[in-house]
Amino acid sequence: MSKFLATYISLPGTTRAAFEHWHEILGGELDLMTYRDNPMEGMPFEPDPDAVAHVTLRSPGVELAGGDQMPGDDNQYPVRDTAYSLLYTLDNAEEGRRVIDAFLAGGGESNMPFEEAPWGGWYGQVFDRFGVMWAISTP
C-alpha cells in the first residue's frame, strides 16, 4: 500500500470558493460534496445543507482536501497565519512565477518576493485571497 501525506484544511464557509480558485490555478480534478449531496444522519450538529462536507483537489504532485468549519466550532483558528504554509515545489522558476502571479491576480498578497534563494533555486510566499499562505519553491 502506498503511503503519503495530504493536506486537509477547514475554512470558515469559503471552502467552495477557495478550492474552485485553487483548481483554476493548479488544474487537476476537483471533487466536492455538500451536506445536501450526502445527508448524514446521527451527526451531533445540524449542518447547513450547502456547506462543504468534503472536497478533494488532485493535481500532479498535489492532494488537498477540506471542508467548511461548522458554526459554533470551538476550534476556529485564524486562517491567515505564518505558522503554516502550503509548500508547492515546481520544476522551474517560470512555473513558480506563473503560480505566484495567478495567486496575486486572484486577489492574493505577496508575503515574500519570488526570487533566487540563498540555498539555490527560487522561493517566494503569497497569501491567497482566503488567507492561506502558499510557499512556492523551485530547484
Rank of each mutant, 00 (worst) to 15 (best):
S2D: 15
K3W: 11
F4V: 06
A6I: 10
G13N: 12
G13E: 09
T15M: 01
R16K: 14
A17L: 13
A17D: 11
A18N: 01
F19T: 05
E20W: 05
H21Q: 12
W22S: 02
H23M: 10
I25K: 11
L26H: 11
G27N: 05
G28W: 11
E29W: 08
L30Y: 00
L32D: 08
M33N: 03
T34N: 04
Y35W: 09
D37R: 06
N38F: 09
M43V: 02
M43H: 07
M43Q: 10
D48F: 05
P49I: 15
D50P: 06
A51G: 11
A51E: 06
V52L: 15
A53K: 15
V55P: 13
P60L: 11
V62A: 10
E63S: 09
E63V: 15
E63D: 12
L64V: 05
G66V: 15
G66H: 15
G67M: 15
G67K: 14
G67L: 14
D68V: 14
M70A: 07
D74Y: 14
N75P: 03
Q76A: 13
Q76L: 13
D81R: 02
T82S: 13
A83I: 02
Y84Q: 04
L87E: 12
L87P: 10
T89A: 02
L90K: 03
D91F: 03
D91E: 12
D91W: 05
N92V: 00
A93S: 01
A93P: 02
E95F: 13
E95Q: 14
G96T: 03
R97H: 00
R98N: 04
V99H: 07
V99Q: 07
A102Y: 05
F103W: 10
F103I: 07
F103V: 07
A105R: 04
G106M: 00
G106K: 00
G107T: 08
G107E: 02
E109N: 13
E109A: 14
E109K: 15
E109T: 15
N111L: 13
M112T: 14
P113F: 14
F114S: 07
F114D: 08
E115M: 01
E115V: 01
E115H: 02
E115G: 01
E115S: 01
E116W: 01
A117N: 06
A117W: 01
A117R: 03
P118N: 03
G120E: 09
W122N: 00
Y123A: 01
Y123D: 01
G124Y: 02
G124T: 08
Q125C: 11
V126L: 08
F127P: 00
R129Q: 07
F130W: 00
F130I: 04
G131W: 04
M133T: 09
W134I: 11
A135Y: 08
A135N: 14
T138Q: 02
T138R: 01
T138E: 03
P139H: 05
P139C: 06
P139I: 08
